[in-house]
Amino acid sequence: MEQILIQGALLSGLYALIAMGFTMIFGVGRVLNLAHAGYVMVAGYSYFWATYMMGLPIVAGFAIAIAVSTGLAVGTYLGWVRRFLNDPTIVFVSTFIFALILEHVMTLAFFRENINVPPIVVGMTQVMGCPVSNNLVAAVIASWACIGAVLFFVRKTHMGRAMRALAMDRRGAIISGINPDMVNLTTWAISGALAGVAGVFWGSYTFLVPSLWVLPLIMSFAIVVIGGLGSIEGTLAAAHIVGFMETATVLAINDKLRSVPGLVIMIIVLLARPKGLFGR
């Protein structure tokens, strides 16, 4: 029981970080960026390349990972998504293919073998009799710091308020002088940076493999839908619902059914309350 609580809380923190960027893009631009999980995967590889293969310090590894994923996100937006903001299907399909392209490129660069990223913080701690890796604790602390920073940004800065305005009422926001293109670009950049941080921690929590993006993508889907697409608070709450359910399933039933409870809740929520638990 303690184990479910502790591991669930830790896993939820990581999920929240990954889903955050995903939900922001939907909130502002009303498109789903399926390549988001691809950025997470590429960021993990960039970090591994910089710190282990090139021998750079950890900080430099972070910087490179964040730079790469932000660059990819901005590139995706400027490259073609900007032109298709009114056609979600095209964005949906093209970003899905783009994630696949990222997978192929990473396979060409790093091969298909599983690679383990050395933990950023070494060691284990016993919490209430359960072994918890310090690395995961650090990851969750960093996640919460990032989430806090994003919340602060969205609530307290001019750009953040513009993002919220755009999410609430697109036409009204444009009339009141907000440049939607600029706001969208900022959102994509922030979401890319979040994917970078998430990628480093997700990679060091699990391992690196070019198909790493599939599971985080599916989990992010479930989280953002349950929380209400576009709602940051909802995402936080839903990440914890999904995280705890998942940990409980893995520990009590079967680890192969890991993703099922989240998806079942997602379907129920969608059919019963399509706006999500916290959506407007």
């Binding site: 949906f92 697409l229 192969k256 079942v264």
Partner: peptide
Amino acid sequence: FPSMRVRGPYFALVSLAFMEILHRLIIA
């Protein structure tokens, strides 16, 4: 079919979820 009550990307997500759930159930 009941999922066709929801539209756009939501329907895509539900259908993807069904596929993944069936996949997991068959394995487990």
